[in-house]
Amino acid sequence: MDAAEPYASWSRRIAASDEAAFEALFRHLHPPLVRFAAGLVGSEAEADDLVQDAFLRIWTRREQLDPQRSLRALLYRSVRNLAYNAIRDRTTHAEKHTDMMPPPALPMPDAATEAASLDERLRRWMAELPDRQCEALTLSRFDGLSHDEIAAAMEISARTVNNHLVAALKTLRTRILTYEPGYLDH
């Protein structure tokens, strides 16, 4: 679906300082990139800043854009790296408590809790996947990136992307089979 977008053409035009192409790229990718970044950093305002940074970097280095390489993957990788940097920077500046206290008492999972809907359950189960699997699945299923684009964005091999996706789907399948097997009827 998104393969129809003229990324290669935009890439060429932006390298030639075509602002209209840059705006078109921005308007197309800004919403999903903000959503992706917000999922990593937890705040939409901060995500917006990160995505702005990523686009600004593309613009200031636009002569280096290569139309052969996925512009979309480049943006996702840039946003992702900025997000992880922000998270790392944030924790080094955080207040550290001297830990004389025992670990916080966590509420035990309430076996009687009914998840209201499949929607909530799927979201929760996705959030419980290992980080890399959740990212790969999100980029593939919701952002529509190809395996190669995901590999470029996450800086891993396409084969690993595949492994993450299969593992994620299998885990979700197990969850559904355990709690709501009816959802898999087909």
Partner: peptide, 13 residues
Amino acid sequence: MRRPLSPLMPDRS
């Protein structure tokens, strides 16, 4: 650190 993400539009890909 992660928020459950979802498509911008429901999709049948």
